[in-house]
Design a binder for these strands. Sequence first.
DNA 1: CTTATCTTGGACTAGTCGTTCCAAGATGGG
DNA 2: CCCATCTTGGAACGACTAGTCCAAGATAAG
Lengths: 202, 202
Amino acid sequence: MPDVKHFDPDLVLEQVVRLFWERGADVTGIAQVVEATGLSRSSLYATFGGKEQLQAAALRRYLQRRSRPVLEALAADESGLPAVAAFFERLVAARCTGEHARWGCLVTNTHTSAAREVAEIRQVLDAHHAALCAAMHAALQAARERGQLRPAMDLEAGAQTLALLAYGVNLRSRAGAEAAELTAGVRAVLDGFSDPTTTEER
Amino acid sequence: MPDVKHFDPDLVLEQVVRLFWERGADVTGIAQVVEATGLSRSSLYATFGGKEQLQAAALRRYLQRRSRPVLEALAADESGLPAVAAFFERLVAARCTGEHARWGCLVTNTHTSAAREVAEIRQVLDAHHAALCAAMHAALQAARERGQLRPAMDLEAGAQTLALLAYGVNLRSRAGAEAAELTAGVRAVLDGFSDPTTTEER
DNA sequence: CTTATCTTGGACTAGTCGTTCCAAGATGGG
DNA sequence: CCCATCTTGGAACGACTAGTCCAAGATAAG
């Protein structure tokens, strides 16, 4: 009986993701969301609720569509350190060039947003951090099995390092850091993780 | 002949630093600055100019009073890796406990602020990054001279790593990360930097 | 085609934003 | 004390904020 939506909520949410990601959710008004999506305020509020819930939905979509596939690929890649290197290579490339250059990472940016105090969003940030660490840990585990790592290395700690490093890359890229700087920072970590007896330094 | 200011601009700026640092400059209104400082709008605008200039002034004060002394101490400490370890120990402690717990770092937070697009502020961020890298580089240089480092290690790249790591620590701490996680992430990097032939792993 | 139900556009609210302005107040040299 | 000069409190500005509301429009089952 009733009318149906005259738009695709999924498509709209993707536009909101890009808006919040590029400009920052805190400083992006509902008016700009309305303009970017072409929706009316009524439809927006009826579909997503208020701004806080819209931000949470956008963050979840970003995680699901942008972050999760990459982390799954990393965790599934059993090549060890080369998998980690490839992850960071692509990360730096995505942060410094192309469509999303200098946008940083929506998750990283949200760490400093006012929304970080919202319980629901905080949980998403913590869950993402856990997932990021888990993926890194899986890759390091593979590296260990292939004898690529320093024997005494603590995998949990190493995974934390790589996660923190990724946040650093994301953050600095939003302020316009050079890709070469970021790449160098990554390289030094991975060199430090490698087993010195089996690795020829570059 | 003229009247003089009825307040101490330096004291006021310190209050503004804390306000912007804890809450975030983007989401802190002039009204809140007025309330926190006790100044009137007139005095505020006459002394500091608009909000953008106030944010820049607060950032510069933060760098001068909070960041510079620590970086100078790091660069002057010739003990090598222990100096770096001590730097991060104090950093994690300051970020996770005490008066400024969960505030993160004003410089780090500014990376995702709308003000990062302002040329003046961008330059301050880049200058700080250079200073941070330089201090790390000095500490690594000392570590090399004392034979604490892997022989093949690239000091420039290592300094970048440590800078990115510091950003990661600052960022995650603002979202409420546990000190233990952050400490572990730091430890794994420093272990990787140490000379494996002269270091007994912990 | 009717009708119940949902969606939509757009006007509207109450509040906040950064900023400006001016009369009143404070200051200290002459 | 006088007065030029700066500072101060507070009102006011237009633009924007998130969010609400309702009449008009669209839909599809009966």
